[in-house]
Amino acid sequence: MENASTTSVTIHCDVKPENILLDSDFVPKVADFGLAKLVGRDFSRVLLTTMRGTIGYLAPEWISGVAITAKADVYSYGKILFEVVSGRRNSGPSGDDKVSFFPTLAAKVVIEGGSVITLLDPRLEGNADIEEVARIIKVASWCVQGNETQRPTMGQVVQILEGILEVNLPPTPRSLQIFYVNQ
């Protein structure tokens, strides 16, 4: 996330649903910058000595111990987008002693050209713009790519969600492929 200053970038380090608040007009606001790291523009990466953030929203680079960029927050935001579509957490029991992982199912449906309405939060009773739902899932799939260079910037994410930029079909994110066979 970029701040108003042109000399630094803030990496939030803990983007998750609990840290996105809505004001009285339902405009989202990012909160809890307790783990954030301010990085000078002349540095594109920062090596943190301790892992920060919340399991389930952490980008793969956190786990591998390499220096992170603002693209770690993009990854976390992509995981949130999947939850916005489904209306539930990304993983949970499927009822047959297996774990259901929604991002894998969503990516599979979009990539294979299935009906995205089947992915929508059932409480919405199918009342959604199919193209918008597909766009959200596509951009979320790009956001959670294992290779951070394949992820869009947050500025690009906003432009895609607003319909200013087009979004192509993403490859199945490598981090989701391990769950692909069980879906």
Rank of each mutant, 00 (worst) to 15 (best):
H12R: 03
H12N: 11
C13M: 09
C13Y: 00
C13E: 05
C13K: 12
V15I: 13
V15H: 08
K16A: 10
K16T: 02
K16I: 01
P17Q: 04
P17G: 01
D23Y: 11
D25I: 08
F26N: 10
F26E: 11
F26M: 15
F26A: 14
V27N: 14
V27L: 13
P28K: 06
A31F: 10
A31G: 12
G34T: 06
L35V: 04
A36Q: 09
K37Q: 12
V39R: 14
G40C: 06
F43W: 13
F43V: 13
S44M: 09
V46W: 04
L47E: 13
L47A: 13
L47F: 14
T50P: 01
T50R: 14
M51A: 14
M51Y: 04
M51I: 15
T54Y: 01
I55P: 00
I55H: 05
G56N: 06
L58W: 10
L58D: 01
E61S: 09
W62N: 10
S64G: 01
G65W: 00
V66Q: 14
A67L: 06
T69D: 06
T69S: 15
A70V: 00
K71T: 04
A72K: 03
D73S: 08
V74N: 05
S76C: 00
Y77F: 15
Y77I: 00
Y77T: 05
K79N: 14
K79L: 12
L81N: 03
L81V: 00
F82V: 05
F82N: 12
F82L: 08
E83Y: 07
V84T: 13
V84P: 02
V85L: 10
R88Q: 14
R89N: 04
R89V: 09
N90D: 01
P93W: 11
P93L: 12
S94H: 08
S94E: 07
D96V: 00
K98L: 05
K98W: 01
V99E: 12
S100L: 10
F101M: 07
F101T: 05
P103F: 00
L105D: 04
L105M: 12
L105R: 12
A107P: 11
A107N: 12
V110L: 06
V110C: 11
V110H: 07
I111E: 00
I111H: 01
I111K: 09
I111L: 09
E112V: 07
E112T: 13
E112A: 15
G114M: 05
S115P: 10
S115F: 08
V116H: 04
V116I: 04
I117S: 04
I117A: 11
T118I: 09
L119T: 11
L120H: 02
D121F: 00
D121K: 09
R123Y: 10
R123A: 13
R123H: 11
N127R: 14
N127H: 07
A128Y: 09
A128L: 11
A128F: 04
D129F: 03
E131N: 15
E131I: 02
E131A: 10
E132C: 09
V133N: 01
V133T: 07
A134R: 15
R135A: 10
I137M: 01
K138Y: 02
C143H: 05
C143F: 06
V144Y: 00
Q145D: 03
G146H: 03
N147V: 10
E148R: 08
P152G: 06
T153D: 08
M154T: 03
M154V: 09
M154W: 01
G155H: 07
G155V: 09
